[in-house]
Design a protein around this nucleic acid. Structure first.
Lengths: 220, 220
DNA sequence: TATAAAATTTAGTCTTGCCTAAATTATTGT
DNA sequence: ACAATAATTTAGGCAAGACTAAATTTTATA
C-alpha cells in the first residue's frame, strides 16, 4: 500500500535529517514537521512496527530509514523535485514560489504523471534549486559535481574524478590509492575542521577540506 | 476555511446531481461517492449546520447547495476541468486518461496555479470532454451553444439568440416577448415530453422541445 | 557524582470521516 | 387503505493522526 500523505512527509524529513549519517531525533523531526514531539513518537512507533518496516527505531535513540523506507522517501523527493522543475519551466513560476505548490502535489501525482513530466523535461539531473533529483529507480545520484567533502559518516562510494589538483597532490593521492574507480568509505567526520576519516583498501586516512573538495565521487 | 477534500467531493457531486433542479437524494449521493448512505447522512447533517451553511437540507428531502456551496462546488469543478484541459495539452494525455489524475489534483492546487494554467491555456471555455469550464468568478457559463431546452426548474437567464427558426416561429416568439435580451425563468419541467413552463414578463407559457431547442440563453 | 535541564515517551483525549446494525419514515402495489 | 419494500436516519464503533499533561530517561552542569 502507498503510504499516507502524513507518512510520506515523515519519511521525507527523516531522509533529510539522516543524510549526514546520524539518526534523526524525535525533537528535530517534530520541528521539521510542525508537529508536537509526543505525536512524532506515536507515529514512529507505528512505522517501526509495521509488516515491512519503513524505519529503524530504538527508544531514545532516534530513527533511521530501512531500505524500503529510503525508497519511499526518494519517491516523494523525486516527485517534489520533478514538479518544481516542471512548474518553473512550463508555468513561469520563480524558483522561490514553487516549493509550497510542489509540497502538496508531490503526494497525489501518479507514477504515469511522474514519467510524463520526467520525459517532457528530458530527465533532468537537478531541480531549479540545484538539488539532485533521485533517479527513476529511486537512487540518489552523486554525480561529478559532488565532492567527497559532501559525504558523511557511513557513506561510501567510488571515485569518479579528481579536479583542480596540482602534480604534487596527484602524486600524493596516488600513493594513498586515491585514483578514479577506487572504492572509498567514510569512517568519520569532524564538524570542526571538516576533516574526513576515510578507508581505502583496508587503510584509513584523514583528509582535509582542501583535498576532499577536489575528489568527485559516486555513491555505491 | 477551505473545505476538506471529502467535503469538496460531496459538494461537487451534489452540484452534478442537482443540475436538473431537483434535490440530491442520500442514496444517489452515496452511490456517486462510493460511500454508504448512513455516512452520507452524517456528513450532510454536519454541512447543513455549519456557520455559513454550504447546503440546504431537510430530513428525508434530499439536499441542494446554498449559493456559498455552489461557489465552492464550481471552484472544484473549475479546477478539475482546467486540469484536464492542461494535462491533455501539455503532457499528451488522451481524453480518457486524465480524469483520475485530475480527480486527485483538483483538491490541492492553489489559486495561483489555477490562474497560471487558465492563462497558459488562453482561458478555455470547454474541457477536452466538451464540458463547460466555470469562469474565474465561479459562474457556470451557458454559452450560445446551450439551448433553453437544457434548463430546468428554477433556472433563469437571458435570451442570447434564436437559431434555426422560420419566419412563422419568429413571429410567434416575438408575440410572446421571446426576443434576444429578454429575461426568462423556468417554472417547471416535464420529463415526459420535455415541455418547459417558463415565465416571461409576468406571463407564463408552455413550450415544446422543437421550440426550446432553438432558443439560446445565458444564465443570470 | 548529584542534580537540574532537556529530550523522549506514556497515557488519555479529540476530530474527521468512514462503517455496520437497527430503527424509522416514505413509497408503492394491490 | 395497508402491508411490503425501499430509502433514510440513528446509534454505536473504529482508524488515522494530531494534542496536552504527566512520567520517565538522558544529558549536561556544578
Amino acid at each position: 500500500m502507498k503510504p499516507s500523505t502524513s507518512i510520506q512527509d515523515y519519511l521525507k524529513r527523516i531522509y533529510e535529517l539522516t543524510e549526514s549519517g546520524s539518526p534523526a531525533s524525535t525533537n528535530d523531526l517534530a520541528r521539521e514537521l510542525n508537529i508536537k514531539p509526543a505525536s512524532v513518537t506515536g507515529m514512529i512507533q507505528k512505522l517501526a512496527s509495521e509488516k515491512p518496516a519503513l524505519i529503524e527505531y530504538q527508544k531514545h535513540q532516534g530513527v533511521t530509514l530501512t531500505s524500503a523506507g529510503k525508497k519511499a522517501a526518494l519517491e516523494v523527493i523525486r516527485h517534489h523535485r520533478l514538479l518544481e522543475t516542471w512548474l518553473v519551466q512550463t508555468l513561469g513560476y520563480s524558483w522561490d514560489e514553487v516549493h509550497e505548490e510542489a509540497e502538496k502535489l508531490e503526494h497525489v501525482i501518479s507514477e504515469d504523471f511522474e514519467r510524463r513530466i520526467a520525459a517532457a523535461l528530458g530527465h533532468p539531473l537537478r531541480d531549479p534549486h540545484g538539488e539532485l533529483i533521485p533517479t527513476a529507480d529511486l537512487k540518489m545520484p552523486l554525480d561529478d559535481t559532488t565532492p567527497l567533502s559532501a559525504l558523511r559518516k557511513n557513506q561510501s562510494g567510488k571515485i569518479l574524478s579528481i579536479k583542480g589538483a596540482d602534480a604534487d597532490l596527484l602524486r600524493y593521492l596516488d600513493e594513498l590509492g586515491l585514483t578514479p574507480n577506487t572504492m572509498i568509505e567514510v569512517i568519520d567526520y569532524s564538524p570542526f575542521d571538516h576533516n574526513l576519516t576515510i578507508k581505502v583498501e583496508k587503510k584509513t586516512h584523514v583528509l582535509g577540506l582542501s583535498v576532499t573538495s577536489k575528489i568527485f565521487i559516486e555513491e555505491s
